[in-house]
């Protein structure tokens, strides 16, 4: 397992809804689990999020959306990541949370989101998902 304190996670809130309680709870819980968490605040554009991912060299991007715009914003973020040469599941793990209906979740998981965590997901599931998958990223594979 990759040492958690060397795993960097960016928690991002794209779009216009300002409800960041959930994002903050997740950010804190991940910190308490021993990860290095960067929180960038509310109302971020996909461009800001992707630039932050690059400058912070994070391994996990957690996206929180409650506005209903997830089928626009998340594909846009994935597209920008790929444009910058960051392949989901290879260079970066992308996870999402918020109010995302199951059909949409399935669709998002097809296009590069590692896992969508719906309301009521225990934090331990998110942590377990990161632990199980982060070592598969190029960065942590032995050269």
């Amino acid at each position: 397992m990759v040492e958690r304190s060397k795993v960097r996670v960016l928690v991002a809130k794209p779009g216009l809804d300002g409800h960041d309680r959930g994002a903050k709870v997740v950010a804190r819980a991940l910190r308490d689990a021993g990860f290095e968490v960067i929180y960038t605040g509310i109302r971020q554009t996909p461009e800001q999020i992707v630039e932050s991912v690059i400058q912070e060299d994070v391994d996990v991007l957690g996206i929180s959306i409650l506005s209903g715009a997830h089928m626009v914003l998340i594909p846009k973020i994935l597209h920008l990541l790929e444009e910058k040469g960051l392949k989901p599941n290879d260079d970066i793990l992308v996870i999402a949370g918020g109010i995302i209906p199951p059909d949409d979740a399935q669709e998002l998981e097809k296009i590069g989101v590692g896992r969508v965590f719906g309301p009521g997901s225990p934090i331990s599931e998110i942590i377990a998902f990161i632990d199980e998958n982060v070592h598969k990223l190029k960065k942590f594979r032995p050269a």
Binding site: R4, S5, A27, R28, L30, R31, D32, A33, G34, F35, E36, V37, I38, Y39, T40, G41, Q44, T45, E47, Q48, E51, S52, Q55, E56
Partner: peptide, 18 residues
């Protein structure tokens, strides 16, 4: 205690990120 960290300084400077 946990080795974890919550880095939040960026929040205030995000408009410069692009």
């Amino acid at each position: 205690f946990t080795g974890g960290a919550l880095l939040g300084d960026r929040i205030r400077m995000q408009r410069h990120s692009t």
